[in-house]
Design a protein around this nucleic acid. Structure first.
Length: 647
RNA sequence: GCUGGUGUAGCACAGUCGGUAGUGCAGCUGAUUCGUAAUCAGCAGGUCGUGUGUUCGAGUCACAUCACCAGCUCCA
């Protein structure tokens, strides 16, 4: 058999382990963790018995990281079993940045308990236990796990297909059902840290028992672990929920209620200017502005399907089940309201595409545990829009929507952090979705082709059972500082709602045709986008979107009126300027402005006043020297007009 | 909704074994008129998230509730 290790190769007649084969070529080092053999990840002690293409992996490879951390999760489970023998094991995979293991245990694990478990893990590492794989036939595997009193493992085996290979991994006294692969020995797991303990449902289903999930991370060296933990700490400092409150962008008030943040003047200002910018940009791209009611009668939502599909998520005014009495609901979306604009009169194919845009406030009754700062709230305002189209316009208009979102998010500097998901229906859950399989397949294939063309094949992931109840979506996703993902922008193709609302147009053959609809947002909802901006820029929003752009700092009383007239002039040019005329030393005022992350400070003393100049200080680079007022004016205006993201 | 954690002045925090609440910054007043990240002094500020209970006595203990945080589930 021929064994290819990239450039080098080896010919063998007898079976040999990956480790021994690689070692003969001098390719193994301490950093080698596993190997990809003919496309499958294998442990180093995997026995080769035929021709193979082999790639050795270290921690720098995704495969290596995964194997390393998967072994760390077994280490955790072993320590847990030693300290709490009654604990039942569920599952323990490697995840991005670490691993977790789910346990069923009577004892709730506190941070102190985690410390003790971590110490036990370190002990096992020092024991240098070999990690060995073995297989069992199905019946024996089940009996084995029954004997060990591991009901979750029994269930996992029972759910495996009949022909599945059932493998176990043993390290010392500990054995776990696992597909593997794993490291050679526990000794390599030198830098392991348990980070948190939370609840998680068995099999991710709310109806199942809640287990205890212990999260951890692992690195080949203590230095790498330390660097990672420091990065996490740094990221948390950018948390909009902290920084947004400190910098007075928003606050919450117990008595107002959950998910109902108060936007303070700075937050309100930035959202106002984003909103104006969105509305103006959309107008230039052919959108018609609408303003529709924030609520409607129950009957209206029955037509749209929301009453059947989304009642739990709506705020209802009145008794939803008393059909005798009038009942209203606050709107959870804009779609059917905006359709009324189209329905206002008879439409012809000449009216299409009709692009409708609205700065739309929505209300969604999220579960109490869902709210998060400005990212997930119960009332929010979205740059909403619907495009009503002839079939032949679908591709072009979808493209336009994506281009608009890209332009918007690029101007905000967020585009580079986004990734894409093609959210599809689940054909097995027809209760959740409206329409026929034929309609869904058609909409999804149209959308798939568009995405391949616009984003490129493979540049988006597919999310099954993530669609809207009326159609597939392109979701533009972003992660917050905690690594949690949220949808920033969504563009959806809808082939169902138009019919429900009796929307038709007359085509050139004088036939009545039901239009296609695209639901879309251009830059998402303002609260969430602001939150992600605050995190991206650590509170120092770029000049063009900063609530306060320039602060003028007179040194003494004599410069106050000059400072004020300068502020008036900049304000007249549309800049957002304040004067700090407090009787304080200049250092004090600068410190205050720096802490508030004001982009530019203009220091005005006797010298500047007499020569008509300003001493400019940037929050980023400090004192950048004195320049004539006109020069600063042009300097600032350029940054604002060009939406410069570096200042 | 579920699991765990947190809640003391505007903010950051201290408060021992249950004995009647403190520090720094911010604020206000006065003095100081000052050149690139904190001038000095004085003053004021609290129903210890809320409620109920235990107790002679509760910031501290118990229960409930509200809000905030992380995770799970959910997310049109």
């Amino acid at each position: 058999m021929k064994l290819n290790f990239g450039e080098q190769s080896l010919v063998k007649n007898e079976p040999i382990t990956v480790y021994d084969a690689a070692n003969e070529l001098g390719l193994v080092s301490r950093a080698t963790l596993c190997a990809v053999v003919n496309g499958t990840v294998r442990a180093l002690n995997y026995e080769l018995d035929g021709d193979a293409d082999i790639r050795l992996c270290t921690f720098d490879d995704e495969e290596g990281k995964k194997v390393f951390r998967h072994s760390a999760s077994h280490l955790l489970a072993q320590a847990m079993k030693r300290l709490y023998p009654d604990t039942k094991l569920a599952i323990g995979p490697a995840i991005e940045n670490g691993f977790y293991y789910d346990f069923d245990s009577e004892t709730p694990f506190t941070p102190e308990a985690l410390k003790a478990i971590e110490d036990e893990m370190k002990k096992i590492v020092r024991e240098n236990l070999r990690i060995e794989r073995f297989e069992l036939p199905r019946a024996e595997a089940i009996a084995f796990m029954r004997e060990k009193d591991e009901p979750y493992k029994v269930q996992l085996i029972e759910e495996l297909p009949d022909d599945a290979v059932i493998s176990f991994y043993r390290q010392g006294e500990f054995v776990d059902l696992c597909a593997g692969p794993h490291l050679f020995s526990t000794a390599a797991l030198k830098a392991v840290k348990l980070t948190q303990c939370t609840g998680a449902y068995w099999k991710g289903d709310q109806k199942n028992k809640m287990l205890q999930r212990v999260y951890g991370t692992a690195f080949p060296s203590k230095d790498e672990l330390k660097a990672y933990l420091e990065r996490v700490e740094e990221a948390k400092k950018r948390d909009h929920n902290k920084i947004g409150r400190e910098l007075e962008y928003f606050t919450t008030v117990d008595t107002v209620g959950q998910g109902l943040p108060i936007l303070l003047p700075k937050g309100a200002r930035t959202i106002q200017l984003l909103q104006r910018w969105v509305e103006d940009t959309e107008r230039r791209r052919g959108y018609l502005l609408t303003k529709t009611p924030l609520m409607a009668k129950r009957e209206f939502f029955k037509i749209s399907g929301h009453w059947d599909h989304y009642l739990d998520g709506m705020f209802v005014i009145g008794d939803p089940y008393d059909e005798e009495k009038e009942c209203f609901a606050l709107r959870p979306m804009t779609c059917p309201f905006q359709y009324q604009v189209f329905l206002n009169k008879k439409r012809s194919y000449r009216d299409l595409p009709m692009r409708l845009g609205e700065t739309s406030t929505l209300f969604r009754n999220e579960d109490s545990g869902e709210m998060h700062g400005l990212i997930r709230v119960r009332q929010f305002t979205i740059s909403e829009g619907h495009l009503i189209l002839r079939p032949d316009q679908l591709a072009e208009e979808f493209k336009g929507c994506l281009q608009l979102a890209k332009d918007m998010l690029s101007a905000l500097g967020l585009w580079e952090d986004c990734y894409f998901r093609f959210s599809q229906w689940d054909p097995n859950r027809t209760d959740k979705y409206e329409g026929t399989a034929e309609q869904w397949n058609k909409a999804q294939s149209v959308m798939g082709e568009l995405l391949d063309e616009l984003l490129g094949k493979g540049n988006y992931s597919i999310g099954i059972d993530e669609a809207a109840f009326y159609g597939p979506k392109l979701d533009i996703q972003m992660r917050n500082v905690h690594g949690k993902e949220d949808t920033l922008v969504t563009i959806q193709i809808d082939m169902l709602l138009a019919k429900k609302f009796g929307m038709e147009y007359t085509d050139s053959n004088d036939e009545r045709v039901t239009p296609y609809i695209i639901h879309r947002t251009s830059m998402g909802c303002y609260e969430r986008t602001l939150a992600l901006l605050l995190e991206k820029y650590a509170g120092a929003l770029p000049m063009w979107m900063a609530p306060e752009q320039i602060r003028i700092l007179p040194i003494g009383d004599e410069q106050e009126s000059y400072a004020q007239s300068l502020a008036d002039r900049l304000e007249d040019a549309g800049m957002r300027v304040t004067v700090d005329a407090r009787n304080e030393k200049i250092g004090y005022k600068i410190r205050a402005a720096q802490l508030e992350k004001i982009p530019y400070m203009l220091v005005i003393g006797e010298k500047e006043m007499s020569e008509g100049s300003v001493a400019v200080r940037s929050r980023k680079t400090g004192d950048i020297g004195t320049m004539p007022v006109d020069e600063f004016f042009a300097f600032a205006k350029k940054q604002i007009d060009e939406k410069d993201l570096n200042n």
